[in-house]
Design a protein around this nucleic acid. Structure first.
Length: 230
DNA sequence: GAAGTCAACCGGTCAG
DNA sequence: CTGACCGGTTGACTTC
């Protein structure tokens, strides 16, 4: 179903299926002509007449059920190639392509409509997938932040346990921050600039990110992966 | 036999 | 009004 660099997608549409209108049924029969020859090419070529004429031949509904038209690999390849070049066709391009593919212009038109729809559907699916992953990471981030808030609250209730390496005094809670390496709450010396280290207990933490900076809106993950698709 | 694929259709919208 | 396009749907055919 996938051809070269272009994208294809399909989706099953759950839900209502109403009985088709009679006119639709009849027209379907008209399009899917019984092949006049034995090969697939012959069969497709058989659809080249005017629609009126075809309708006149088969429109009564008395004919036997016919096979579904399938485009040959070469026809599909050319259509895909054309689609990569341009997602829409002007009437002249349509006619030329139809002539080249031995199809009716209407068939080329329908193919392009369906192809655009598949592209769009695939794009939507990828965006949906992307949003789901983003939601998951947001949930995780939310969980971590809540945990962090709880830790901070606990510290506020109890006396700070972080001792200043300089004065050997307990540090105030307002100077606490998080070590990006081990993600533990620790203390930053305010007068030491954006990157300093503080020793708490048995380990040394890098102090770079403050709590407020961690509370900024999260950035979206890269969409490059599917932006290039289509 | 269920689920998936896809050409073809219909009805609606919109630009020219 | 006409033609192009879109979303939704159908049904023949294929694949699992």
């Amino acid at each position: 179903m996938e051809t070269s660099s272009s994208l294809e997608l399909t989706i099953s549409m759950p839900g209502v299926s109403s009985s088709p209108p009679l006119s639709s049924f009849v027209r379907d029969l008209d399009i899917n002509q019984v092949p006049s020859g034995e090969g697939e090419e012959e069969w497709i070529t058989a659809g080249m007449e005017d629609e009126e004429e075809i309708g006149g031949v088969n429109g009564g509904g008395g004919g036997q059920p016919r096979k579904k038209l399938r485009l040959t690999k070469e026809q599909s390849r050319l259509l895909e190639e054309s689609f990569r070049h341009n997602h829409t066709l002007n009437p002249r391009q349509k006619d030329a392509l139809a002539l080249q593919l031995k199809l009716r212009p209407r068939q080329v038109e329908v193919w392009f409509q369906n192809r655009r729809a598949r592209s769009k559907l695939r794009q939507t699916e990828m965006e949906c997938e992307f949003l789901k992953r983003w939601f998951g990471s947001l949930k995780e981030q939310n969980r971590r932040l809540r945990k962090e808030v709880e830790e901070l609250r606990a510290m506020k209730v109890a006396p700070p346990t972080v001792m200043s390496p300089h004065s050997c005094e307990p540090l105030p809670v307002s100077t606490l921050t998080m070590c990006p390496r081990c993600e533990r709450v620790t203390s930053a010396a305010v007068d030491k600039g954006p990157t300093t280290t503080v020793t708490t207990g048995d380990s040394t933490h890098i102090i770079a990110a403050t709590l407020s900076s961690k509370l900024r809106a999260p950035t979206l993950p890269s969409r490059q992966s599917y932006a290039a698709c289509q």
